[in-house]
Design a protein around this nucleic acid. Structure first.
Lengths: 138, 138
DNA sequence: ATCTGTTTGCAACTTTGTTGCAAAATAAAC
DNA sequence: GTTTATTTTGCAACAAAGTTGCAAACAGAT
């Protein structure tokens, strides 16, 4: 398992360090998205806030994780699927936030719909954030 | 014009004060959404940061403005259509952020699409945020 | 084992948002 | 139109979130 994490880091030309491994591991073991605070709390080894910020930033740049816009404007991060390459996110799935347990899901198999925009507008990206009750809280 | 603004405030059982009038006026004269910073800068009369926060909060509660989730997690506010009543937003339109001029539009006539979610999930709200080039920058 | 470049942690700082309280302004009553 | 009650404002102090510079620690290559 740890080797797999190291593999991902190497594949992205990142040196394999403790914090990067632990944080990436954390993402792979949680089925939802993570906020900065979740990471700060859930790592047994305590990392500096700055390190976490920088690690997340690096991961986003390399296309390992992506950010999720939320209705309450907190920052959330989630693992990208393998076909996300450096600097080019293919984040075409819907995000679902449970009102009850606050878990944020990437609905990988629910593609974002095509939305008609008024004349003159040209769309590059579409983000869909849904909220309600998830399959565990229902 | 100023009377109209005062009317809106009274209709929502809010006392008509300088800051509320000026801020509401600002919303009515801008075609896009506004960030807190925009308001702090664009009012000739300078208001305290705290006052702006509280005014916006009140407006959101009363259904005069609504917040918009953004991909870069900055907080944006935009005027609600008249059919938003207190405590009950009918914010069913798509939001569009221009990559070029950074203006955020409420596409009032573009309704959010119905999105199929996996079994067990129950949707209460759907937010759609699109980005690209707007009709002025194209 | 040693060297080189990257990464980390600390400290200090900026920005963003919140809370309590007294002074000022608004709305209502007289 | 003045007085009174309530709401709103601005200040100060604080809390949370995020950033930057720099020296020490570490990873990876020689």
């Amino acid at each position: 398992m740890k080797n797999e994490v190291a593999e991902i880091l190497k594949r992205n030309q990142l040196s394999v360090t403790g914090s990067r491994q632990k944080i990436l591991e954390l993402f792979r073991h949680s089925d939802g998205a993570l906020a900065h605070a979740d990471i700060e709390k859930n790592t047994t080894e305590q990392f500096d806030r700055v390190t976490i910020y920088r690690t997340l930033q690096t991961f986003v740049e390399k296309g390992i994780v992506h950010t999720i816009p939320t209705a309450d404007n907190s920052v959330l991060y989630a693992l990208c699927k393998d076909d996300c390459s450096e600097g080019h996110h293919h984040d075409n799935h819907v995000h679902f936030i449970c009102d009850n347990c606050s878990t944020t899901y990437c609905l990988e198999h629910t593609a974002t719909p095509k939305v008609e925009v008024p004349l003159g507008f040209q769309t590059k990206q579409t983000d869909v954030i849904m909220s309600g009750t998830c399959n565990k809280c229902n």
